[in-house]
Design a protein around this nucleic acid. Sequence first.
DNA 1: CACATATATGAGCATATGATCATATATTAA
DNA 2: TTAATATATGATCATATGCTCATATATGTG
Lengths: 111, 111
Amino acid sequence: MTLEDSVPTVDLPTLEQTAELAEIFHLMGDPSRLRIVLRCLHADVAVTDIAQSLGLSQSSVSHHLRLLRVARLLRAERRGKQVFYSAADHHVRGMLGDMVEHISEGKGGDT
Amino acid sequence: MTLEDSVPTVDLPTLEQTAELAEIFHLMGDPSRLRIVLRCLHADVAVTDIAQSLGLSQSSVSHHLRLLRVARLLRAERRGKQVFYSAADHHVRGMLGDMVEHISEGKGGDT
DNA sequence: CACATATATGAGCATATGATCATATATTAA
DNA sequence: TTAATATATGATCATATGCTCATATATGTG
């Protein structure tokens, strides 16, 4: 069984989809921002908590959070004085989860 | 069945793994580079072909290819005068494939 | 070798980016 | 209202990035 058999027709994403995908990758491409996303992937976390646990400034975290929120990767929910951030939806969790898995496996694989 | 049931213990990647992941995302975060990777995801493609089919300059493509090659996302194979690029391994194909799927689905989902 | 084709690379430049600092806004308590 | 805590945002700046142009290298042909 060749590779082509298991990958019959590989519809490449449209230019628009590619641009959208690139935007997501671009956001995840910054280490601080990626750590923030991962921190919020499976839990609601307040801004101060994120900053403290990752050793980043409140301002920096807030700036990053705005980008992630606008891009709909994270969602914000205010409770009292605090704002809790979490993954926007299961697609975000799925994407990142898959990536993390691949990275964990990776390291020595070839085709 | 709650979400937590299906995601028992979510070991976050190490700082090193996160940095590695961010580097990959960073590379994919440029639209031109992402298009190049997608073009090479399921086929060996020569540099000139990539440039022509994507409407990019040879120089620009070559610069991008070097980054992707060094990061081991793509591999190069010379055949005569031409150099053919393709996805380095099944992890790269898997990662991108998963991402493309999520993007294709996405669009309106929430948890 | 000389020449053409294919790819790679270095320099230079305009723009994008991430961090910090200062400050603004929001919420709650006294 | 005043004060304290939590978050957001605008300005500034040093650095990173992507592109182009020119040129170098590599392979094949006559």
